[in-house]
Each structure stands twice: as structure tokens, then as C-alpha cells.
């Protein structure tokens, strides 16, 4: 589901048990109910007991908006994230950035800070995602990233970003956290799914898809027939190795578009969709491009002033859409589309 503000995935594992990967909301400030909770409650799922595992794929506002609320509402769930977020360096960073939280509107760490506080108060162990780690028994859920090398790089970044005395309060900007994404494989008896998070390609084989594929080949990997296309379908998330080594011939692909930034550069671009169509048996996109023009609701004077000042305002309230793919044992996948979701192939 997505984008609204972010993207999220819910997976029925069987026997009334559910997996939630990431969280998004339909409002920027996170006041709206997280989309995964809203969806599950609409289905009549008792989230408190039925959600068994929550995965925070990485620290990026479009993936963790409302994740603390999801965790709070699902006391029966285990929580999985990168080891990085359990390290002393990160807890110190989050604690320090929270100093100016009132002035900085949460400093962009409030969700993770709350998550860590909830987990501490519960005393439940955090499942640290590492390549090849089994997160769940049936179906088998396996994390394939992040690599140790990537985690060290991220901790270096956190050290550089740590606030220093004399600096004004500011928001934390995660930089490029996509390579620390937790990529997940889910294997049922007769079907497998790859959730690519925001993982990107990188020329260094210790990083990105190169690292994921090398570990998967070393440990053993069941090729998947369906993929949540990494990094919103962008070309930076594309890696031939992922398509050739981790997926079946032509998988079903689902893209959750990116809802921020200049509209012309938001992935997936038309070329991205064509590329993914060429590699897939079917392609679904959770939402169309937003057609809302935020400046249209402003007064003429303000619009003219912004234009003349070369200031561009972009819409960031792309409506949330849902692609639902279901199958019964031994049957083919059936799709249903909600909101702005579309089938591209």
C-alpha cells in the first residue's frame, strides 16, 4: 500500500497470523491512523493478537511514519529491524536529537525513539535482521540484509550527524539509508515472495543487491514468483542480479511509487515502468501520479510571488492506493485494486 506518506506491506502468513512491513499514513504529520492498521481493522483482524511480526525495513520517513503506533497496537508482535538501531551509537543519537523535539517537531527521530522505548518497556527481544536469518518458521521468513559492512558505514554516518554543543536544534536527515534496508523473502510450500524494501544497486559487491545476492547464493535461496520492486521502481534500485538470481523467469511485480520530490523525478518514471513490464508477467502500481496542484488553492498573489521568485511548491499528498494479491493453495494469484492503484501490465 502507498504512497500517501510512505509505503507499507501486510502479509497474511496463514492461520490468522499477519506480518506488517513498514508503516505509512495518509497524512504527513502522522496524525492519521497508520495504513496497515486501518486495513487490517477493516478486515476485522484483531491486530493486538494476530500481528506476529513487524519489520521496520530502514530509517526513512516514508517507511516508518506511524510505525510506533503499529507496534503499540500489536503487543503480540515481535519487532525486527537492522542491528544498527539497537546499537549504543544509535540510541545515543536518537536521545540527543530528541533534545529539541518540541521546537523541531520530533526531529525526525520521534517514531524510532518511541519504538525503542516501547520495546524496552516490554522487555521483548528485538530481532536483528542479518543476511540469511530466519525470522519466522511457517511460512519461512528470511532477512537477506543489511550486510555488516553497510551497518558499519551507517554507524559512521550517525557519528558524523551526532549533534554538537553550540549547534542549533535541527531535524535528523537520514542521508542515504536505503542500503541498510532489510530485504525479506517469504517462502510458503508452493509460493515465494521477495520484498525488496528500498535496497539499491551498488558497484561495491559488499553493498546493495550485490551483497544480498552473494549471501543468498551462499546460504541458499528459493527463487520468488512475486516481488515488491525495490526503491519504488527507480533505476537506482534496479539490479540485473536480483532479477536473474532471486526471481523466477517473469515474476508478478508490485511497485509502490515515491510520493515526494519534483513530480517529474519521482519514481517510477515511465521508463522505469517499461523496464519492469519487460521483466514481469504482470505489473501493479499502488497509486497513480498525483494530479493535485498544491498552488491552485493559494491566492493569486502568493502564486505569482512564488513563481516570480523561482520557488517551486510540490504536492506531497499523493492519495494512498492498495494492490491486494491473494491465492489459494495450488491456484493462481488474483489481484484486486483499491484507491489509485493500477495495473501497468
Amino acid at each position: 500500500m502507498g504512497p500517501g506518506h510512505g509505503e507499507a506491506i501486510v502479509v497474511h502468513l496463514g492461520q490468522g497470523e499477519w506480518l506488517v512491513v513498514d508503516s505509512c499514513t495518509s497524512a504527513w504529520d502522522g496524525t492519521a491512523q497508520p495504513a496497515p492498521l486501518k486495513y487490517l481493522r477493516a478486515l476485522g483482524v484483531p491486530v493486538a493478537s494476530a500481528v506476529k511480526l513487524i519489520v521496520a525495513s530502514h530509517w526513512d520517513s516514508d517507511h516508518i511514519q506511524g510505525i510506533a503506533t503499529v507496534l503499540e497496537s500489536c503487543p503480540g508482535a515481535e519487532f525486527c529491524c537492522s542491528t544498527t538501531f539497537t546499537r549504543r551509537e544509535f540510541t545515543n543519537f536518537v536521545s540527543s536529537m530528541s533534545l529539541g523535539a518540541t521546537a523541531t517537531d520530533g526531529a525526525n527521530v520521534s517514531d524510532f525513539h518511541r519504538v525503542l522505548q516501547i520495546l524496552r518497556s516490554r522487555g521483548e527481544p528485538i530481532i536483528a535482521a542479518t543476511p540469511g536469518r530466519k525470522l519466522f518458521k511457517k511460512p519461512i521468513i528470511t532477512s537477506w540484509s543489511p550486510s555488516d559492512f553497510e551497518e558499519e558505514l551507517f554507524l559512521n554516518f550517525v557519528a558524523q550527524q551526532h549533534p554538537k554543543a553550540g549547534e542549533p536544534y535541527r531535524r535528523a536527515v537520514p542521508g542515504s539509508p536505503n542500503l541498510t534496508s532489510v530485504v525479506i523473502g517469504i517462502d510458503w510450500d508452493d509460493a515465494s515472495v521477495l520484498l525488496g524494501a528500498d535496497m539499491e544497486s551498488h558497484p561495491d559487491v559488499r553493498r546493495g543487491w550485490g551483497a544480498v545476492v552473494s549471501r543468498a547464493k551462499y546460504i541458499g535461496f528459493v527463487r520468488c514468483g512475486m516481488v515488491k520492486v525495490p526503491h519504488h521502481g527507480s533505476h537506482t534500485g534496479h539490479d540485473e542480479l536480483m532479477w536473474t538470481e532471486l526471481l523466477n523467469g517473469r515474476p508478478i511485480s508490485v511497485i509502490a511509487p515515491f510520493g515526494k520530490g519534483p513530480p517529474q523525478s519521482r519514481p517510477p518514471k515511465p521508463a522505469d515502468v517499461r523496464r519492469i513490464n519487460g521483466l514481469s508477467s504482470s505489473t501493479f502500481i499502488t497509486a497513480r501520479r498525483s494530479t493535485t496542484k498544491p498552488m491552485a488553492k493559494m491566492s493569486v498573489s502568493v502564486r505569482r510571488s512564488l513563481r516570480e521568485g523561482m520557488i517551486r511548491i510540490y504536492d506531497s499528498n499523493t492519495p494512498l492506493g492498495i494492490v491486494r494479491l491473494r491465492r489459494k493453495h495450488g491456484e493462481k494469484w488474483k489481484h484486486e485494486l483499491f484507491g489509485g492503484a493500477v495495473q501497468a501490465k
Binding site: N92, V94, S95, S96, R120, G123, I126, A128
Partner: peptide, 10 residues
């Protein structure tokens, strides 16, 4: 932050 870290079980 240290206290939070000590309270986490990984």
C-alpha cells in the same frame, strides 16, 4: 541513550 540501550534485549 545508554540507559535505553541497556534496557533493549536483542
Amino acid at each position: 541513550g545508554d540507559e535505553l540501550h541497556r534496557g533493549l534485549r536483542v
